[in-house]
Computed example of a mutant assay.
Amino acid sequence: MWPRSAAYERTSDISFPAEGLDGVLHGRSTILGLNPGESSVERRPWQNFHTAGRPNDHLLAEAFRDTPYWGAYMTDLVSEVNSKSATLDLSGETIRRDIAVLVEQLQALEHEERHSEY
């Protein structure tokens, strides 16, 4: 979920907004990436999908604008921070752990969605 903008560009501020989220964030759909990529800046909460510049997240913002996916939950399947997907630890243990975390997140979203008023 990005702040409203006339258009997003490589240098746009697409940091996660702290205000104005009521009625926008929802759990009706989930955007799932493979894993968080490395970043040259210090990682903060929500940063993976909310960085300007090289990661091209402004393209995601434009793709979801004015669609039912605007405000959707965005997360990653694998928790390992690594920009080289071919070197990810995809062992059975890692996948089971990360899928269990994803299931917990989706169950929490489902619970919130059922108990929210839109």
Rank of each mutant, 00 (worst) to 15 (best):
R4I: 09
R4N: 15
A7C: 08
T11F: 05
S12D: 03
D13F: 00
S15F: 02
F16K: 03
E19V: 15
G20S: 05
L21T: 11
L25H: 02
G27Q: 04
R28F: 10
R28S: 12
G33H: 06
P36K: 04
E38R: 12
S39Y: 06
S39G: 09
S40F: 04
V41N: 12
R44G: 03
R44E: 08
Q47H: 11
H50T: 06
G53T: 05
G53I: 04
G53V: 04
D57N: 15
H58V: 05
L60M: 15
A61P: 11
F64N: 07
R65T: 10
R65L: 11
T67C: 05
P68L: 11
W70Y: 12
G71N: 00
G71F: 01
D76A: 06
V78M: 12
V78I: 15
V78E: 01
V81I: 15
K84D: 14
S85V: 15
D89V: 07
S91M: 08
G92Y: 03
E93Q: 03
T94D: 01
I95P: 06
I95H: 04
L102M: 13
Q107C: 12
A108E: 15
L109R: 10
E112K: 10
E112Q: 11
H115C: 09
S116A: 14
S116N: 11
S116C: 13
E117A: 02
